[in-house]
Simulated assay, not measured.
Amino acid sequence: MKRRMLLALAGGLSLQAGLARAQAPAAQRVRLRGRIDSISAERMEVTLPDGGKASASLPANLRVTELMPVKLSDIREDSYVGVAAMRQPDGALRAVQVMVFPASSRGVGEGHYPWVMGEGSTMTNGTVGSMTTGTVGRVGKGEDLVLTVRYKDGEQRILVPEDAAILTFTPASRDRLVPGTEIILNGTRAADGSIAAASINVGKDGVLPPN
């Protein structure tokens, strides 16, 4: 009897622990633009565009990439791209930036999901299936580039206006992260508000994508 009670108690505690983990809020994606104030091996302090301050922990496997502009003509059928877009009132997607991934990064983050540029923002990572000109819904002038981006669960038609940023990237050293450098930090924010960086983008010759 005593043994059965102990086993039941242990099972109950295990169930409670499992429920607690299930109910714990998931870390939220965060994307911060800022200027590095100070940096160490484990932590970075930055000033945000509005003058606010932020601090982020830096993991040993932090990814640092250098962004550089490319031409619209560098996007081709079968290119693997990541398109940050804003959903328009009629549901159409209008690109803010297109990241042309190097061949070695094909498949990274594949899919279509909400992004961190504000309400209505999306990210679509996939392979360019077709490139046409025209409009998407009521968006565009009829001569804009329209990409069909395909991923494993579907596809999206996205209008790429003339003012969209077209970028690519190459891996960079952490040595590029010095005080005064403008960066974009991608990571997560925990329930207690603490930020953990996963990757940091620096721009070649000061180039950075729009927020």
Rank of each mutant, 00 (worst) to 15 (best):
D50Q: 09
G18F: 09
A27Q: 05
G51S: 03
R106T: 15
V81N: 10
Q156P: 02
P210I: 00
D74E: 14
K71C: 05
L177E: 05
S173G: 06
G107H: 06
Q88G: 05
E110I: 04
G18P: 01
N211D: 11
A17K: 13
A22D: 04
P89E: 10
D144C: 02
R189A: 02
P25Q: 09
A26C: 02
A26Q: 13
M68I: 13
G34I: 04
G107M: 09
S121H: 11
N201L: 14
S55C: 10
G118I: 12
A95I: 03
Q156S: 07
S104M: 04
R3W: 12
T170D: 00
S194N: 04
T148H: 08
A85V: 10
L19Q: 07
G142T: 04
A8R: 15
M68T: 15
T127F: 07
L62D: 11
S40P: 01
I39L: 11
G154A: 05
H112P: 00
V178C: 00
A196V: 10
G118E: 02
A56L: 15
N211F: 15
V96H: 10
P69Q: 08
L7Q: 13
A84K: 12
R94F: 01
R150L: 07
A172V: 04
G52V: 11
A27H: 05
V64Y: 14
M68P: 00
N211P: 07
M5H: 13
E162H: 12
T135G: 00
A84M: 09
M131H: 01
E42S: 14
Y151W: 05
G18Y: 08
R4M: 11
Y151S: 02
S199T: 14
V83D: 09
R31C: 06
R76T: 15
N125G: 01
L19D: 02
P209Q: 12
V83S: 05
G206C: 11
R94T: 12
L58S: 08
V128N: 06
G51P: 05
G134V: 03
I36K: 01
L9A: 15
V46K: 05
K141S: 14
D163T: 03
M99Y: 10
R63H: 11
D153S: 14
L185A: 08
V116Q: 12
D90F: 07
A191F: 03
Q97G: 00
K2I: 11
D50P: 04
N61G: 03
A84T: 15
G142M: 06
Q23L: 15
T135A: 00
V128S: 02
L19M: 12
R174I: 00
I166F: 06
E66L: 10
G107L: 10
G134C: 03
L159A: 04
A165F: 13
G142D: 04
G107Y: 08
R150M: 07
S130H: 13
R35E: 12
D37E: 15
G129A: 11
V136G: 03
T124Y: 00
R189V: 12
I158S: 06
V83M: 08
A41M: 10
L9N: 03
A60P: 01
T124C: 00
